[in-house]
Design a binder for these strands. Structure first.
Length: 423
RNA sequence: GGAGAGGUGCUCGAGUGGUUGAAGAGGCACGCCUGGAAAGCGUGUAUACGCCAAAAGUGUAUCGAGAGUUCGAAUCUCUUCCUCUCCGCCA
């Protein structure tokens, strides 16, 4: 959520920058400013009125003590009207604040100045590429065929047990999953991230804190009985560790990593995008999260991107980094880099990581602040990135590393899998 | 699921209607003391939203949350959420 301060002090700039996100803010921003003005005015009147009532009450107490009954009685009568007046003002205030809040949650974050213009995937800027494109035979198989051939991932079985998008990993398939998780967690640990194991189910306040609610309500699985949500990413529980927290400036940057299963309803997805492992309702991911000082957050973002790059390099996959254009970025992000790896049989780039700086947008909802010395608390910046999401990594490994003697496991993973080939 | 207890500041903990934003202790910060440290002494130590050009200052709100009683609520009533203990069930 944008702060009122930013909106009221840099109105024109806010509207201009929102335009880059394909969000027409002219009307809505002016509405915010108007409401904010109304809110201030109402508060002045209300505060004065409350103040008067407080003073009156105090004097009544005093008068009673002194035994001046009549005077106290007179003062008491005066309070009646004040109280009625206050009630009206309080309701008005509440309505204004509610409306303001409702509007603010519909305004996306401002994109960073370096975000390219555009609204389509084609408008994303390729920042960097690396790795070697595999030279596959004409009859190379897509990963869902390979999964079947080697009997390592059973999509039909998942359909039977749960439904589409919930595959069952078996044998070396399951062990590969576990190997990747361990490899990613160990790497993050070495890079200085504190490992945490968060809950996979969160309350509404947490969903709201990171921005899944109310904007993306329909994307999360919801447990009606207990009013809890299955996490779509570990970002939600991990970032919410810092909800309503005031950190010391010296604690920054906070660096956390977590593995979790992720659950996404993916309503409306179809076709080749959801084939095989390309898009699942449940998948595994290791996430990195940082809470940082505003002056340092872009340095952190760079470090995180560099870190993720080391992962895809170690996995020997062809990769590229995209700087997302305004229209392709998430609602809450200020700057996002996507990592894609090439799946050579599908001949497609697959997104495996998204690394973002949310600046103070999430922190404002979370009320995640830091304090330096005796200065006023200030909003932190929050960042996160996948490091990495498993299914598409697995898809690319299967497709790119297919050989006549089986699927070759990247060297870095062999100590984790305990085997060199899936055969 | 059944029964009970409880939710106060960074922490512990007092507080059953009237300068209580909240005693006391601890912690922390700064200062004094010291050759240095400890001890000791002193001072300070919430957040949000306003007012003010700004600082100084000042108003309002906040003792889990919401509503109510009252001139006045941390204190009384109701609702609700959460935590803990015991029993039951159970990885």
């Amino acid at each position: 959520m944008l702060t009122l301060k930013v909106i009221t002090e840099n109105t024109e700039e806010v509207i201009r920058r929102l335009g880059k996100k394909r969000f027409d803010g002219k009307v809505i921003i002016n509405k915010v400013i108007e409401l904010d003005k109304k809110r201030r005015n109402t508060q002045v009147v209300l505060d004065n009125s409350l103040s008067e009532l407080n003073a009156l009450s105090k004097s009544i107490g005093q008068l009673m003590k002194e035994g001046k009954k009549e005077e106290a009685e007179a003062a008491r009568e005066k309070t009646t009207q004040l109280k009625e007046n206050n009630k009206v003002l309080e309701n008005e205030m509440r309505e204004i604040e509610q409306e303001l809040q409702n509007i603010l949650t519909t305004i996306p974050n401002l994109p960073h100045d370096s975000v390219p213009e555009g609204s389509l995937a084609e408008d994303n800027l390729t920042e960097k590429t690396g790795g070697v494109m595999p030279d596959l035979a004409e009859d190379a198989l897509p990963h869902w065929e390979l999964a079947k051939r080697y009997d390592i991932i059973d999509f039909e079985l998942g359909v039977k047990i749960t439904g589409a998008g919930f595959p069952v990993y078996k044998g070396k398939g399951a062990r590969l999953q576990r190997a990747l998780i361990s490899f990613f967690l160990d790497s993050a640990h070495e890079a200085g991230y504190l490992e945490v194991q968060p809950p996979y189910v969160v309350n509404a306040a947490s969903g709201y804190g990171t921005g899944q609610l109310p904007d993306k309500e329909g994307q999360m699985y919801h447990c009606n009985e207990d009013d809890l949500y299955l996490i779509p990413t570990a970002e939600v529980p991990v970032t919410n560790i810092y909800r309503d927290v005031i950190l010391n400036e010296s604690d920054l940057p906070v660096k956390n990593t977590a593995y979790s299963a992720c659950f996404r309803r993916e309503a409306g997805s179809y076709g080749k995008d959801v084939r095989g492992l390309n898009r699942l309702h449940q998948f595994d991911k290791v996430e990195i999260v940082r809470i940082d000082h505003p002056d340092h957050s872009y340095q952190s973002l760079t470090e995180m991107v560099d870190y993720v790059q080391t992962l895809v390099e170690k996995l020997e996959l062809p990769w590229r980094i995209l700087r997302l254009c305004g229209g392709d970025m998430s609602f809450t992000s200020a700057l996002t880099f996507d990592f894609e790896v090439y799946a050579a049989a599908q001949k497609r780039w697959l997104e495996v990581s998204s690394v973002s700086n949310f600046e103070s947008y999430q922190a404002n909802r979370l009320k995640c602040r830091f304090k330096s010395g005796d200065k006023k608390p200030q909003l932190c910046h929050t960042l996160n990135g996948s490091a990495l999401a498993l299914p598409r990594i697995v898809a690319a490994i299967l497709e790119n590393n297919q050989t006549p003697q089986g699927i070759r496991i990247p060297k870095v993973l062999v100590p984790y899998t305990g085997f060199e080939y899936i055969d």
